[in-house]
């Protein structure tokens, strides 16, 4: 077995947390309102909301801050801004978010690599946590429901214990101080582990048949569903910062009053804003909400062509719950598109 599996009693979680917090700052989901959770710094394990499924912003914010200084300049030189990067521990990252980080890693690692993201990514420990889906989760449809990589440690809830998978060298190092608390997983533990994931797979109530999704997205580019949805679209851009794989940014200059120095900054941007695809002389390649909305949908569900060739939706359901207009119900949209597609095929056959 590639992963080293151990059993951590839930009663010992406090010690496990203590041990993690000795390595650096720990960030975990905490409850911020009746319905919302957010990754925040936690000092004690009691602050952690273990029941949290999706936080408002995904964990990408810890590697890719909402705004950051890239470089500073004055009249003679340009200097890269290299912030002090502290070691950070992200606790409670669910499978969809691990998949999301995997996609962000691919984009930011592709040459020329993005040092600002990667330097932070390399200076962190990711502790995954199993979850049970709610009515908005559809990671199973996107094939991101089972964690395969992207974590150092992963905890599966198997009743009174967690099954702790240690995936990386950093993970091995992190559990070393708490080895006395752990015991090697036995057959019974492995059965409980398998039962959990099997039950979880049955627990999804939301989803679609993903097989032909890329083709359907291509076929239905002119579907009137986009216009209907766009009539409701606020172009508020809420769907993009909350997406674990939305990486788009803007680069802006902030000049100082002295006229010689300043800095260049990167800020999260959204393809839903009207100026996103506008070029010099005000020519706009995506002037209307419909152009931007279906661009986003296509990017998520059809995704990249070469060289990456993957879809960029991980099925976390954040956009669905964050859209004030209720038009980011990806599952319903896909179901509608697939149905239209089937109807069309039937019609063509006749």
């Amino acid at each position: 077995m590639m992963d080293h599996c151990f059993v951590l009693a839930k009663d010992s979680f406090a010690e496990f947390f203590e041990s993690l917090s000795k390595l650096g700052r720990v960030y975990a989901p905490v409850k911020v309102s009746d319905q919302s959770y957010s990754f925040r710094q936690v000092e004690s394990h009691e602050q952690i909301a273990f029941e949290a499924l999706r936080t408002i912003l995904p964990p990408k914010k810890y590697f890719y801050p909402t705004q950051e200084t890239i470089l500073r300049y004055n009249d003679v030189q340009i200097e890269e801004h290299k912030p002090e990067i502290d070691f950070q521990i992200l606790f409670g990252v669910h499978p969809c978010d691990l998949a999301g980080l995997g996609i962000m890693d691919t984009i930011f690692t592709a040459g020329p690599a993005d040092s600002h993201y990667l330097n932070r990514r390399q200076s962190s420990l990711i502790v995954g946590l199993s979850c049970m889906p709610d009515k908005h989760c559809f990671c199973q449809s996107m094939g991101t429901d089972c964690p395969e990589s992207g974590y150092d440690l992963f905890l599966t809830d198997i009743g009174d214990d967690y099954l702790l998978e240690v995936r990386t060298a950093a993970g091995v190092k992190a559990v070393d101080p708490i080895m006395p608390l752990l015991r090697a997983a036995g057959q019974d533990d492995e059965s409980r582990y398998k039962a959990f994931w099997s039950n979880r797979a049955q627990a999804f109530t939301n989803g679609f048949k993903p097989d032909n999704l890329r083709s359907v997205m291509a076929m239905e580019w002119d579907n009137k569903i986009w216009d209907e949805m766009a009539d409701r679209c606020l172009s508020c851009g809420n769907c993009t910062p909350v997406c674990p794989t939305c990486y788009c940014f803007d680069l802006v200059d902030i000049a100082s009053l002295n006229g010689t120095s300043g800095e260049r900054r990167r800020e999260w941007d959204s393809c839903q804003f009207v100026g996103f695809a506008q070029v010099a002389a005000d020519y706009n390649f995506r002037p209307g909400p419909v152009d931007r909305l279906k661009f986003w949908y296509r990017h998520k569900l059809h995704g990249f062509d070469d060289p990456f060739g993957f879809q960029t939706c991980v099925g976390c359901g954040r956009c669905t719950v964050s859209c004030p207009a209720g038009i980011d119900d990806i599952v319903s949209v896909v179901q509608a598109l697939q149905a239209t597609n089937q109807a069309k095929t039937k019609h063509d056959a006749n």
Binding site: I107, F108, A110, G111, P112, D114, Y247, C248, F249, D250, L251, D269, C271, F276, A277, Q278, V279, Y283, F285, F295, H299
Partner: peptide, 15 residues
């Protein structure tokens, strides 16, 4: 012509 803001396949503007 697209809004090639970063030039290195990251910022998304020219997608």
């Amino acid at each position: 012509e697209r809004q090639m803001k970063c030039g290195i396949g990251k910022c998304g503007h020219c997608f």
